[in-house]
Design a protein around this nucleic acid. Sequence first.
DNA 1: CTGAAAGCGCTAACAT
DNA 2: ATGTTAGCGCTTTCAG
Lengths: 325, 325
Amino acid sequence: MKVTIIDVATHAGVSKATVSRVINKNPNVNEEIRQKVLHSIEELGYLPNAFAKNLAKNTSNVFGLILPDITNPYFPILARGIEDASHRLGYSLFIANTDNNPDIEQEYIDKFISQQVAGIILISSSLDELKVKKLSELSIPFVLCDRFIMDSPFDTVSIDNYKASYEVVKHLINKGHKDICHLSGPLNVQSANRRKQGYVDAIKENDLEPCILYGDFNFESGYQLMKTILEDKNPSAVFAGNDLIALGAMNAIQEAGLTVPEDISVIGCDDILFAQMSRPKLSSISIPAYQIGVTAVDMMVDRIKGVSTQPRNLVLEHKFIERES
Amino acid sequence: MKVTIIDVATHAGVSKATVSRVINKNPNVNEEIRQKVLHSIEELGYLPNAFAKNLAKNTSNVFGLILPDITNPYFPILARGIEDASHRLGYSLFIANTDNNPDIEQEYIDKFISQQVAGIILISSSLDELKVKKLSELSIPFVLCDRFIMDSPFDTVSIDNYKASYEVVKHLINKGHKDICHLSGPLNVQSANRRKQGYVDAIKENDLEPCILYGDFNFESGYQLMKTILEDKNPSAVFAGNDLIALGAMNAIQEAGLTVPEDISVIGCDDILFAQMSRPKLSSISIPAYQIGVTAVDMMVDRIKGVSTQPRNLVLEHKFIERES
DNA sequence: CTGAAAGCGCTAACAT
DNA sequence: ATGTTAGCGCTTTCAG
């Protein structure tokens, strides 16, 4: 049978209020009694029932994390940052995969609210004005990652994808590249959209010809898109929408008997584990995923504690890591 | 303000007991009233408070998942399987990273029990008889993944690492390889231990000379170990303890000016995403990580429902995927 | 088929 | 400094 606060109280010969005080480190407890209670707790192996506690306090120490797919290698790092920060601050973490399906996303939001989470960290690709409005009517804080929304009521953490992309393409141009292709992710994902725009602007400013192919943020897509390109083009550089696309593209290039970066430079974007492994061949825009996660939790806690009241849009610094000099 | 079951009851002009019945699909409710209640729920945007529900029922619909590190690419797939299955069955999922630290592991176990999880799925490297005994005294079911423990009171799901390893080494031998090295993970991790043993037995049975180096289950380790080997040996095949080690080894081999698999065959073990990408160069023992996750949850539910009472040790089938013929 | 009321384990006034 | 008690929101007998 489970041991409750009453068992402890009985065992220690005090009231449950006193036990509660000891548990919650309320200073108004006689040291002697305090020790006795602590001893009873130890003896009985008592663990407080979080349901009862949260119900009584009408709060919880759980965050919900909703993301597209934990098997997409960008997300474990983000998730790890979020989990570490949550744990450090005494929170537990729910996790949910949406596969970018808005219905499933909503389902999880409802589920988490039903579970009384203290806040939800959301990585969503389907977030329009309407949805944001609906969410803001829920009485629970959201922090949005990788998604900057103008005038939204929510805190957001992201990097400047436009700038990152613009800079890296500019850099390629300065190195003399004239035929630079872009393998983009789906445009309904904001990061893909911004990256594409940075590419386009940098290309146009230099009177070059844009060449964009669209796919998904995965290896297979990169492989297929690159194969398509190689059929009738011969670019000297490729800017991939993320690292998985970059790795897929590298495979296709090598399969075609060309080498990276001698024949074609490939630039990725994410700096995920396996892209790091391809060092020194693959240069990449390095996104501080872990830091984004930690920051998201920090913002959430500030919001919950009332430290911050206005929505903040934090933009973290990216880096460009050039692996071949 | 949050809307409770009483708000709904008032709105619909019934008692909260009736609302409760509607929510829980109790058939003993007049269809007309039922509709009225449903309508009120919709209208008010009511979401039941899981704390109150679980407190009243003394159950919960949450599982806890405790694993070493979600950024190790084997685990996201497992975690995804677990999350999918949990969600399908109406459970939420906590996630926790231990970095293989027994203290942190215990901390999370206590935390999750305090949170009243219905069960814990544990991937642990530090599980001796004593720990198992302590866990079994807790009034909560555990399912152990990738860890078979004789006579333990817990359900386990794993593959036969010994057999997988033995077979693959045998296979190499049959193909004529005589110098086969093994890059092992840490022996306190059971899977590493069993894989090593399978290697040793296959090698000895054929009067060959074992050659084993120990490291961690990561890329860097594989890279370093392989470099070390290449300094004074020239194996024709390498059996890596997992896919990260295999990828690291491949990098070292290629850096040394040799090619895979022409000069040296490399066999991995895990079949993680990035190893799949290295196709067709890297053959691998394919571990059904997703399926292990799903199975773990199924076993957990059977246990909770009382369908199964005796501890079961499920061994899932692995495959060998030969990428180069 | 529906309502009233007790109780799940804990917290937080309010008393003492 | 400690005990008493009224909830927190929901389920579940038990009556009717």
